[in-house]
Structure formats: structure tokens, C-alpha cells
Write a protein that binds this DNA or RNA. Structure first.
Lengths: 206, 206
DNA sequence: GTCTATATAGTGATAGAC
DNA sequence: GTCTATCACTATATAGAC
């Protein structure tokens, strides 16, 4: 019986949107925004270029769609830092969760890195508002822990920077990491995890 | 008396080359290779586009010229690590020198980051040869220091990665660093220097 | 909804006057 | 050595058939 469903997005539509976003993530994360062409995205998604533009109005729209959700996902582990938990355990859990994300979502990490590296032209003021607000909130928690003598006294914001820098390095500079370690096939993450655990355990001890 | 000098590059030529490379460094480091246009470079260098191409045969030639010298400069401080020196002092000197470079040469850092982030399409195999060789050489030194119990036993390569990650973060993610710290005008480096000094002092203590 | 064909603008590079 | 004009090519986006 036709005419019953008016505008629920069909399964094939949802599948195509997902394929486009996945292909675009691949391309944007390795070639940057300008370096990516609609042809590349269309081919990898298995669609024609005009058909791709039926799903998204423009190249920028695809990019924005990807970025918009990303910052939130990216900061979830920091958001989960529990003021009531054990300080060292909470921070180490954050570090390890962040490193896991580098391994499991390297494309997302590189997309974000590309964006920030180029001056955050699309993410823009969100860094100074949403991101800053979250860091400020967690800074209070860190300072309290330091005042109680439960972790070493350090600059709280630079402590967070150090977590970001060390964990994201393995996704963003993956090519360099593997080239220097040699043994092409080997997974660098187990050793990285050990190293980072040692580093922060020592750093946080009062 | 004409005809005496055959082909010594005139002062204006040298000046133009320098202006082009400087403009190109600006552009490439913030927009990437594909994201940069010859128009942008030409305008910032104060030359016409054809005139720019009189000095360099192609866009790629400018990019290659910039990259070729960069890796060497970038690794100089690591090369300077003295096996005969005091281990902790040598490593801390390396860390601080590297952080200084992030402050003084942020564009070069971002140019390099852009390149590696996108899979090192131009730097390519140099990472697996020249860079790996240098790291391997210094790894031997680090291991010896660890065997002698003069610094803590850590994975030497990941130790080097951590130095790179932490110091370069301040150049590559400058926008984010300043957005989170707030106080637009403030220089983040003094605090960063203190933090990183503390971090590596703790980490290297046996 | 998906395709072929094409409009339109931008971009790397060249030709040739001065 | 430097400029104006322009070529050849690519890329985003649209029109319109099916």
C-alpha cells in the first residue's frame, strides 16, 4: 500500500550518508580540507559526485558535520573525570582511555589535528568557550586534589596539555612513530601504554 | 666596466628568494601544501605570480626547498646530545632547546607536522632512514646511561617521542593552548618550560 | 534517487612584450 | 627580470533526462 510513509529516511539513505561520512573522514584526515576532492570522497563511498551532493549540499557541509560531533566525543573521557574518585586512578584511567582513542580513532584525531594546526578556521571560537569551560571546571578538581596532597602540585592546565600531547602523538604522528620504531607490522601501542603509565605515575606522585 | 661579472646572484635576487621562502613557509605551515596557492605566496612576497615562477620552477620546488633543510635543523639538538656529558643535564638541555625551537620557529614546526600528519608524502622514506638512524644511535647512549643507573630505566625511543610530543605541542596546537589558557596576550612558554622541566626531572630520576 | 552533461570559477604554469 | 595575457587543467556545483 503506497503513500503511507511520507518522509522517513530510507535504510539505503542512512547507509549512504554513513558511507559518505566515513569516506570523507578518511580523506579529510589525511589530505586536509583543501587537499580533499569530492571525487575522492565519491569514489570511496561508491557514489557518483552529483549523487553525493544530493545527500550533502556542499563539501564544507560534510566537513562541518564531521567536526561538529567530534569535539564532544573527544572530550568525553575528560568529562568523565570523577571528583569523588581516587585522584591517581582517575587520572591514569583518563590517560589510558585517551590513548585507546588514539588507537581506535586515529582518523578522528588527525582530523582534529589538521583543524587546530591550521588555526581552527571551522572549529573556531568553540575552543575558547566550550573547551575552555570544561578545562576550567576540571582544573578546579585538580587543584583540590593538589591542595589535599593527594597528587603532586603541578600546573593543572599544562598537566592536561601533557596528557593530550602524549596520547595524541601516537595517532597524529603515526607514520613517524612506526618509521622510527622499525618492524613495520608491530603495534606500538602496548609499549606506549606502559611508558605513559610509568610517566604519569611518577609525575603525579607527591 | 661591464662584462666582468658573469652570474653571481644579485643582491635583489637573493632578497627575493628569501622573501618567497618566507612567504611560502607562512602559507604552507598554516594551509598545508594543497591548501596553499601560488597567488597567496606571490602576494605576501610582493611579487607577481609569473615572477615568482621565475625564481622557482614550480610550487612543489618551493615546498621541497623548505622541507629539505628543515629535518636537519630540527634534529640538531638531538644530534648534540653528548654521551660524555651528565645524563640528566644533557637530556634536560635537549628538552629545553627543543621547547625554545617551538617558540622561535613555530611555522617550521607546523610545516613538519602538516607533512607527517598527512603521511609524509614528500619527506617520505627519510623518516625510516636518516631519522631512524639518528634515533637508533642515541638510543644506544640512553640505554648505557640506564644500565649505569644514572637515569631511570625507560623505553628509550618512547622517551624521545615524549620529548617531541610535549615540546612540539606548544607550536602545533598553539591556537588551542592559547584558547584554553585564556588571557590572549600572555606567553604560555614560561609556565610550559617550568612544567616540562619538572616532568622530565621526575621521570628521569631512578 | 541516480545518472550524464555541463556551467563556472580557480589554479598551476607558459608565452611573449617590454 | 618583470609584467600582461592566456592556456590547460581541475574542482565545486548545477541542470535536466530517466
Amino acid at each position: 500500500m503506497p503513500g503511507l510513509q511520507t518522509k522517513p529516511p530510507s535504510r539505503i539513505q542512512q547507509e549512504n550518508r554513513r558511507a559518505i561520512l566515513d569516506a570523507a573522514l578518511d580523506a579529510f584526515s589525511t589530505h586536509g580540507f583543501r587537499g580533499t576532492t569530492l571525487d575522492q570522497i565519491a569514489e570511496k563511498a561508491g557514489l557518483s559526485k552529483p549523487n553525493l551532493l544530493y545527500y550533502f549540499p556542499s563539501k564544507e557541509a560534510i566537513h562541518t558535520e564531521l567536526l561538529s560531533g567530534l569535539l564532544d566525543t573527544w572530550l568525553d573521557p575528560l568529562r568523565a573525570l570523577d571528583p569523588a574518585g581516587d585522584p591517581k586512578a582517575e587520572l591514569l584511567r583518563y590517560v589510558h582511555r585517551k590513548l585507546e582513542m588514539s588507537r581506535e580513532m586515529p582518523r578522528e584525531s588527525r582530523l582534529f589535528a589538521n583543524e587546530v594546526l591550521q588555526g581552527a578556521p571551522h572549529l573556531g571560537p568553540l575552543l575558547g568557550t566550550g573547551l575552555k569551560a570544561l578545562v576550567d571546571e576540571k582544573t578546579v578538581v585538580l587543584r583540590a586534589w593538589m591542595d589535599e596532597g593527594r597528587i603532586a602540585r603541578l600546573h593543572p592546565v599544562h598537566l592536561i596539555f601533557s596528557i593530550w600531547a602524549l596520547t595524541q602523538h601516537y595517532a597524529d604522528f603515526d607514520v613517524q612513530v612506526r618509521a622510527v620504531l622499525g618492524d613495520e607490522g608491530t603495534d606500538p601501542y602496548p609499549e606506549a601504554s606502559l611508558f605513559i603509565d610509568t610517566l604519569f605515575t611518577k609525575l603525579l606522585s607527591p
